[in-house]
Amino acid sequence: MQYVIPIITLIVGLVGGFFIGVYYLRKQMEKMQNDPQMLQKMAKQMGYNLNGRQMQKAQQMMKNQQFSGKKGPAQGQGRKKK
C-alpha cells in the first residue's frame, strides 16, 4: 500500500496537469485572436516578422480554427481525399 498511493497520486497529478495546460493554452490562443500585438510578439519569438497583410491573414486563420474543444480540422482545411 505504501507504493500504490504515491503512484496513483503521480498519475492523477500528471493527468490533471495536462488538462490544466491544455485549458491555459486554449485561453491564450483565444486572447491572441483579438490582440494583434500579442500575435506579432509570438511571431517575432519564432523568428518571423509579419507585415500588415500577413497579420490579418494569421488572425483570420486563428478565428476560423475555433479553440472550443472541437476535434478535427476546421472547415475548408486539412487534407483532401483523392
Rank of each mutant, 00 (worst) to 15 (best):
S68C: 12
K70D: 03
Q75M: 10
Y23H: 13
G47H: 04
A74V: 04
V15M: 01
F19H: 07
L14Q: 13
I8W: 03
K80I: 10
F18T: 09
F18E: 03
R53K: 14
G72Y: 04
R53P: 00
N51T: 08
S68W: 15
Y48R: 13
E30Y: 07
L10G: 11
P73V: 12
Q77K: 09
G78M: 06
K70Q: 12
G47Q: 08
M1G: 11
Y48F: 15
Y3G: 02
M62W: 02
G47R: 06
V15A: 08
M32F: 01
F67S: 07
L10N: 00
F67E: 07
Q59W: 10
M29N: 10
G17Q: 06
F19D: 01
Q2P: 06
K80L: 14
A58R: 05
Q28V: 04
N49R: 02
M1S: 11
Y23I: 05
R79W: 10
G76K: 09
Q54N: 04
G16W: 13
Q54D: 12
M29F: 14
N51E: 03
Q37V: 12
G17T: 05
G69A: 06
P6K: 01
K44F: 02
K27D: 11
F18Y: 14
M62N: 02
A43M: 04
Q54P: 01
Y3L: 09
A58H: 00
I5S: 09
Q28W: 05
Q45D: 14
D35V: 08
Q56V: 08
L10A: 12
P73Q: 11
G47P: 07
Y24E: 13
S68N: 14
K63P: 10
V15E: 05
Y24S: 15
Q54W: 04
L14N: 00
M46D: 15
N49S: 08
G72R: 09
L50C: 03
K41Y: 11
K41L: 11
K81H: 08
S68I: 05
N49V: 10
